[in-house]
């Protein structure tokens, strides 16, 4: 499966640089964020691959690195019983990436969650609202600079 995946991807996308990482029996695929929609659509529809199930979309905040965020997708192929992890780097200065919710509907809420927690904008997302925090809330809590106990008064309490 791993070989097939590598062959098909490098055959289809000649201009995209793929980096394959294998760790703990898991295959991770790293590439530039501009190709994300095309690669995902290909992975979903191509015969023999059929990654039809999007388990999760999340992000990592590296705090001090140049490309500050990494957006991580976990997708699963029910036909081949194979899990793949996709990664794209996103910089803080241009904090956005194309949404994949048109490919997997399941990504819709997961992307909203990543937006709420990290402030990464998902372009062309049908409904990019905050998932958990109130809409008036100004911060993104999972960013490393946000303190664990929060900022006092950021969310109001009812009066006694």
């Amino acid at each position: 499966m791993k070989e097939l995946l590598k062959d098909k991807l490098t055959g289809q996308f000649t201009t995209v640089q793929f980096e394959f990482i294998e760790q703990f029996d898991e295959l991770t695929l790293k590439f530039d964020k501009s190709a994300i929609v095309n690669v995902c659509a290909f992975l979903k529809d191509e015969d023999g691959l059929k990654f039809n199930f999007c388990e999760d979309v999340t992000a990592i905040d590296w705090a001090t690195r140049k490309n500050r965020f990494t957006v991580v997708y976990h997708i699963f192929s029910m036909e081949n019983k194979f899990r793949l992890c996709l990664k794209v780097d996103v910089d803080e200065s241009e904090c956005s990436v194309e949404s994949v919710s048109s490919i997997w509907k399941a990504a819709n809420w997961a992307e909203r969650e990543a937006y709420d927690m990290y402030g990464i904008i998902f372009l062309n997302h049908p409904d990019l609202r905050r998932m958990y925090m109130p809409e008036e809330f100004e911060y993104h809590p999972l960013r490393k600079e946000y303190p664990l106990m929060g900022i006092p008064g950021a969310i109001p309490l009812p009066k006694k």
Binding site: P147, L148, M149, A154, L157, P158, K159, K160
Partner: peptide, 15 residues
């Protein structure tokens, strides 16, 4: 839950 979103005791707003 000592975290940013949990009220640290409801006696802050309820008797």
């Amino acid at each position: 839950y000592r975290s940013y979103n949990v009220v640290q005791g409801i006696d802050q707003f309820l008797p």
